[in-house]
C-alpha cells in the first residue's frame, strides 16, 4: 500500500469485541494510513478469525510512539513468561 510496511503472524488464542468472544488465528500488522485515527500513519494490528472475515476483526490503530511502548512491554512480558515456563 502506501508504505509497504506489512506483516502477518499466525496466532492462537481468542479475543473479545462487541460483547462476544471469538477464536483468532491471524494478526495482520501494517504501518500505513489509518482508517479511523487522526494520524498520517499508524501502527495497525488486525486480529482476525479467517473464517469470520475482516468485518469481525479486532482492530487497533496506534501512534508509532504508543506502538513502541506496547512492543517493549509485550517483549518484556514475553521474556519473563518464557523464563517462567522454562524454569518450571
Amino acid at each position: 500500500m502506501c508504505t509497504n510496511i506489512n506483516a502477518q503472524a499466525a496466532i492462537a488464542g481468542s479475543g473479545k469485541a462487541g460483547g462476544q468472544w471469538m477464536q483468532l488465528d491471524t494478526a495482520h500488522i501494517a504501518y500505513d494510513h489509518p482508517l479511523h485515527s487522526d494520524y498520517e500513519h499508524a501502527l495497525m494490528i488486525d486480529f482476525v478469525n479467517g473464517g469470520a472475515g475482516f468485518g469481525s476483526r479486532i482492530a487497533l490503530e496506534l501512534s508509532l510512539e504508543a506502538a513502541e511502548r506496547l512492543a517493549a512491554v509485550i517483549g518484556e512480558a514475553v521474556r519473563q513468561a518464557r523464563a517462567y515456563e522454562d524454569g518450571r
Binding site: M1, N6, Q8, H28, A30, D32, L35, H36, M44, D46, V48, G53, F54, G55, R57, A59
Partner: peptide
C-alpha cells in the same frame, strides 16, 4: 463487500 474500513483493512492485508 462490507464497511469500507473493513474492506480496506482486508485489501491492506
Amino acid at each position: 463487500h462490507g464497511e469500507p474500513d473493513d474492506i480496506a483493512a482486508l485489501v491492506r492485508s
